[in-house]
Design a protein around this nucleic acid. Structure first.
Length: 578
RNA sequence: GCCGACGUAGCUCAGUGGUAGAGCAGCUGUUUUGUAAACAGCAGGUCGUCAGUUCGAACCUGACCGUCGGCUCCA
């Protein structure tokens, strides 16, 4: 539990550590120009402009020198300056001068100093460098000045600092835990997926076990959508240039699209989104108000050109399948439609054990299409729906896409990390561009409202999140193999095969380990494969027509009648127990 | 795309100018086993790719491809 007081203390410690770091960097490398060094959620960083980037060895050197400054216990001293004075003091620090010029006229300009080092800073800080209990420098990375890729690349040193060794150890332990759960490593170890230089970066090969998990949550997704009145369709992977002209993607999204291929003197583009195809379906027939709301969904595979440096396992790829759907409705139907999307969202996500959410509402940006009235109706209906559910959310003013406002849902995983999956976006652009309409009760033609929404977001990304969330130990309902049958000696294989056939017959995913290995080795391999149940069969079990049940946790349930343990497994699957 | 690091067998890694090695995995044989690794043997690599330096390159240089940590962007 992190109280506000503790949060403030940590912020002070980290900010102060950043100053100490800047101090020693300046001493060790006098040519370095200082940028900024704020505390962050988990630590701090400081950006430096430097001719030769820092190395790991530099970090060690810096860390040692910092220890010395800390043990010298130098007090942090607060001072205020006039604008002229501070500009004067920072003549050799061009980046600081830029920061200073951005400080509003009426604001007090202050610094904190310790020893010989003085840095422009609003504070607050701890009393003295000696009040920094523990810190650690973590890594060095490039970062653009002011986050703008057109500006110079600075060198950023990341570090962390805490009020106690225990707290820091816990934090570093969490980082290690995240590493242990890395879906790229588990994906290989558990034989779930692979990525190949030969096929191309950011393109996923789903192996049978990974594909099994995917098809399980896809089936769940389909069932829930059919139940709630969605129609599911299939659409192509490529489309003609004109389609993407009409949709506006060639104007606004082209840099994220793969280059076209020319066939029959026509340019075809791989689809980066499914919406134009769903719109074609809408337009395939004259629509009446009686047809609305119309909810059209698809597990649609899209391809987007992502810059090389951004790709990351399954979490950031170039080819992915969206659990996409488009809702066409009348203005009066918006609220209940948004509401039912949220219902669906929480029902789906909870099945995976995600029950901690944060939500964002993004409103009209300065450059936008659609009338103010449309935006107001849409934003209000999003707000109202969130409010009526008593959900807390952050409003990101101006954070919406140019074509409409949106709600994003972030889920928190088993080790407290937040992931954005669900997005619900209004679109005032495409209905206009494609001239969508329906015949109203009044006999006139009207333009429908259109909402894009994806719950999982991308199946690849969702799979990556699931792997890390479960640490590879999928709950029984999702486990690619639910039971491993382990015959102790070859004479027990026959009984094992009979068991397997019986279980498969009942729809249970079950394998038998009939290698001529020792039982210990088979148990170990099943354990490493994170299979939820092991059925060990030897003379005793054959004799008593039972199975020796060992759980993934290591717990040994002893010899159990098949029906008894099956009841437990079926319940776990049906209730989607995580 | 940008900054930095890295790329040797399926995996994890050793090998800093003289023609490539280990463990695990794989295959074969022996073993028939009671809750996290039996034993032995065999096989496996144009050292990311292409060019250059050199009598000689896994090793030095360059370009490209890919991966990793970040930045930027985002499902």
């Amino acid at each position: 539990m992190v109280t506000d007081g503790l949060k403030d203390l940590r912020e002070k410690i980290r900010h102060s550590t950043a100053h100490v770091m800047a101090d020693v960097v300046k001493q060790l490398y006098p040519d370095v120009k200082l940028a900024i060094g704020p505390p962050t959620a988990d630590g701090f960083y400081y950006d430096f402009m430097v001719a030769t980037p820092f190395t790991e060895e530099d970090l060690e050197k810096i860390e040692k020198a910092m220890q010395k400054v800390i043990s010298n216990d130098l007090p942090f001293i607060y001072s205020e300056y006039s604008r002229d004075e501070i500009v004067d003091m920072n003549q050799s620090e061009p980046l600081k001068l830029e920061v200073i010029s951005d400080i509003p006229e009426d604001e007090i300009i202050s610094t904190y100093s310790h020893g010989e080092f003085e840095d422009l800073c609003a504070g607050p800080h701890v009393e003295s460098t000696g009040d920094i209990p523990v810190f650690k420098l973590l890594n060095v990375a490039g970062a653009y000045w002011r986050g703008d890729e057109n500006r110079p690349m600075l060198q950023r040193i990341y570090g962390t600092a805490f009020e106690s060794q225990d707290a820091m150890d816990e934090h570093l332990g969490r980082l290690e835990e995240a590493q242990r759960r890395d879906h790229r490593v588990l994906g290989r170890e558990l034989d779930l997926f692979s990525i190949h230089e030969e096929t191309g970066p950011g393109l996923i090969i789903w192996h049978p076990k990974g594909a099994r998990v995917r098809s399980l949550f896809e089936d769940f997704w389909r069932d829930e959508h059919y139940k709630r009145g969605y129609d599911l369709i299939y659409t192509p992977n490529i489309g003609r240039e004109n389609l993407w002209r009409t949709s506006g993607h060639l104007d606004f999204f082209q840099e994220n699209m793969f280059a076209p291929s020319e066939t029959d003197a026509q340019n075809y583009y791989l689809k980066p989104m499914n919406c134009p195809f769903h719109i074609m379906y809408y337009k395939s027939s004259l629509r009446s108000y009686r047809d609305l709301p119309m909810k059209v969904g698809e597990l649609g595979t899209v391809y987007r050109y992502e810059r090389g440096g951004t790709l990351h396992g399954m979490l950031r790829v170039r080819g992915f399948t969206q659990d996409d759907a488009h809702i066409f409705c009348m203005p009066g139907q918006i609220e209940s439609e948004i509401d039912s999307v949220l219902d669906l969202t929480f029902d789906l996500l909870q099945a995976f054990g995600f029950d901690d959410y944060t939500m964002n509402l993004s409103t009209k940006p300065t450059k936008a299409v659609g009338s103010d009235e449309q935006w107001e109706v849409a934003e209000n209906s999003l707000r109202k729906t969130l409010d009526s559910r008593g959900l807390e959310y952050e409003v990101e003013e101006g954070g919406g896409a140019f074509y409409g406002p949106k709600i994003d849902v972030n889920i928190r995983d088993a080790i407290g990390r937040s992931w954005q999956c669900t997005t619900v976006q209004f679109d005032f652009n495409l209905p206009e561009r494609f001239g969508l309409n329906y015949i109203g009760e009044d006999g006139d033609s009207h333009q429908p409202y259109m909402v894009h929404r994806a719950i999982f977001g991308s199946l690849e990304r969702f799979m990556g999140i699931l792997i890390e969330h479960y640490g590879g130990a999928f709950p029984t309902w999702l486990a690619p193999v639910q039971i491993k049958i382990i015959p102790i000696a070859d004479r027990h294989i026959e009984y094992g095969i009979a068991l397997r056939d019986q279980l498969s017959e009942r729809g249970i995913r079950c394998e038998i380990d009939d290698r001529s290995e020792r039982m210990n080795a088979k148990v170990r391999d099943a354990q490493l494969a994170k299979i939820p149940y092991m059925f060990i069969v030897g003379d005793r079990e054959v004799e008593s027509k039972t199975v020796g049940v060992r759980l993934r946790s290591g717990e040994d349930l002893g010899a159990v009648a098949l029906n008894e343990v099956l009841e437990r497994i079926v319940l776990e699957v049906e209730e989607k127990i995580t």
